[in-house]
């Protein structure tokens, strides 16, 4: 059986935990804590170490999803979580352009960890003020060869589409290396 490790990363409150929760077949192993900082109180809880989820695609393929903590003070976990990853997803909060710079920074950091495929998921597309995936691409200066996909983290179908796109890129990459 083949296992594929994917890392789901992105700025604080971009929807990483929800993204994993909506598709994982096991209860997500989550390390959420109450938020102590007033400045970051846009939600109640935040991931402090990682989230872990699993999806069995078929008898031969299992995806392991690792979600990174969004707050900068836990960024020491990023490199640890990136070990052995075959691809990563950068989740962008499409309604908070103030987090785009952080998203770009995270993307560059993960690119530097490993030369693996990645996709950008423009989350919260169900909200009226969401920037479109095309606009997010320009705002983050994402190369044309990289997919930028719209998604809604609590909508299992759109999450599956994002995961599948990354999976295809990973499989292409593996075939090219063989």
């Amino acid at each position: 059986m083949q296992t594929v490790k994917m890392v789901i990363t992105g700025p604080f409150s971009s929807g990483k935990t929800e993204f994993i929760q909506s598709v994982s077949e096991i209860d997500v192993v989550s390390t959420e804590r109450k938020i102590s900082s007033d400045a970051e109180r846009v939600k109640e809880d935040t991931t402090v170490a990682m989230d872990f989820g699993r999806i069995t695609v078929d008898d031969d393929l299992v995806l392991y999803l690792f979600g990174t903590p969004g707050q900068r003070r836990f960024d020491f976990m990023w490199e640890i979580l990136s070990e052995g990853m075959l691809g990563f997803i950068v989740l962008v909060d499409s309604v908070r352009p103030e987090t785009f710079r952080e998203a770009k920074h995270i993307l560059e950091v993960f690119k530097a960890y490993a030369n693996t495929p990645y996709v950008v998921a423009a989350n919260k597309q169900d909200l009226p003020d969401a920037w479109s995936p095309d606009d997010v691409r320009i705002a983050l200066k994402i190369e044309k060869s990289v997919k930028v996909l719209g998604c809604v983290a609590r909508d299992k179908e759109t999450v599956k589409e994002v995961l599948l796109e990354l999976l295809y890129s990973i499989l292409e990459n593996m075939q090219a290396e063989e």
């Binding site: 352009p97 710079r101 969401a130 920037w131 479109s132 606009d135 705002a139």
Partner: peptide, 11 residues
């Protein structure tokens, strides 16, 4: 689709 934000974050 509207684009909203602050010039502090997006010049």
């Amino acid at each position: 689709m509207a684009l909203k934000g602050n010039l502090r974050d997006f010049s």
